[in-house]
């Protein structure tokens, strides 16, 4: 691990100014649970690190009318403990609980989990299903992106951590959502498959909007749009849920992995987990 300077900043403005001064040679660090390992293994090199951990203004979870706003520096543990998320965004609440260990959940942030862009990042899968948008600032301005536009490849996001900072995630409060995860042990391990679903079901039991996210079955967190189409504008029934789960199984393309299991098995598990998640989402609220 080599860096010349480690800056702890108090504000976003200060952070952006430092990033500009280093002109691409520095990098934002939040919890560091992924970045420090990458630096240690010489997978990344930086001249300086700009730590956002002291910016209290980026740690909040709140409802604003029909919208939920989460400060990007909120830790997984803060997400997991939030009653608001358990009630209005269960998928995200459960996903945050599934991340790493207590130590990692205490320090790792939701913003970092997204920018690190792993195809099976638990909160990425949940936020993708919840239709989240990310607010990103730089010294030249601010942009808002839907989450799927952020993911470019394994470990690659469109956020440039040498220039930009993710400040907030915004998503609707009206979904019924659920999260399912299959792994080799109960905690502190990567998933074999994780899925999140978010459904907007009206009073006539018609699904107005279905969103399904699956990992790790592609180079990025995957939206199962064909499966969603089976549910959209249909009356929710057990039969429809099963059909949608079966469709998702067909539209994914997992790889064989010595650690995570064969493609055939993981494909089968997408169906099982999705059925469970959809049933769970339908009965909640």
């Amino acid at each position: 691990m080599h860096w010349e300077a480690y800056h702890c900043v108090e504000s976003i403005e200060e952070a952006l100014q430092l990033l500009d001064e280093y002109a691409g040679a520095s990098r934002v660090i939040a919890g560091g649970t992924d970045l420090v390992i990458q630096l240690k293994n010489h997978q990344r090199r930086v001249k300086a690190l700009v730590s956002l951990s002291s910016i209290k203004a980026l740690r909040y979870i709140e409802q604003d009318g029909e919208t939920i706003r989460i400060g990007a520096l909120s830790t997984h543990n803060e997400l997991a403990k939030s009653d608001l998320l358990m009630e209005k965004a269960k998928a995200l609440s459960l996903a945050a609980r599934a991340v790493g260990s207590p130590q990692i959940r205490n320090i790792g942030t939701v913003g970092g989990n997204i920018v690190n862009a792993q195809p099976a990042a638990d909160t990425a899968i949940a936020l993708l299903a919840l239709g989240a948008k990310a607010k990103i600032v730089s010294s030249t301005g601010e942009r808002v992106e839907v989450l799927e536009n952020l993911f470019k490849g394994i470990g690659e996001s469109s956020v440039n951590p040498a220039k930009e900072i993710v400040t907030e995630f915004i998503f609707p409060a009206f979904f019924r959502s659920a999260f399912q995860r299959l792994a080799l042990r109960k905690a502190f391990t990567l998933p074999i498959i994780n899925v999140a679903v978010a459904l907007l079901i009206d009073q006539k039991n018609i699904c107005r909007e279905a969103r399904i996210a699956i990992g790790p079955v592609s180079t990025v967190p995957f939206r199962a749009k064909k499966a969603e189409a089976i549910l959209n504008n249909e009356i929710i029934s057990e039969k429809k849920l099963v059909l949608a789960a079966a469709e998702a199984m067909r539209e994914i393309n997992p790889r064989d992995s010595l650690l995570r299991g064969s493609a055939m098995y993981r494909r089968a598990m997408v169906k099982v987990l999705l059925e469970r998640a959809l049933r769970d989402a339908v009965v909640v609220k």
């Binding site: 260990s101 080799l184 042990r185 109960k186 905690a187 502190f188 391990t189 990567l190 010595l258 650690l259």
Partner: peptide
Amino acid sequence: VTPSLAEYLIPTALD
């Protein structure tokens, strides 16, 4: 294939 404790999985307290 399992060079570290991230891949080589020992039981956790929850297991």
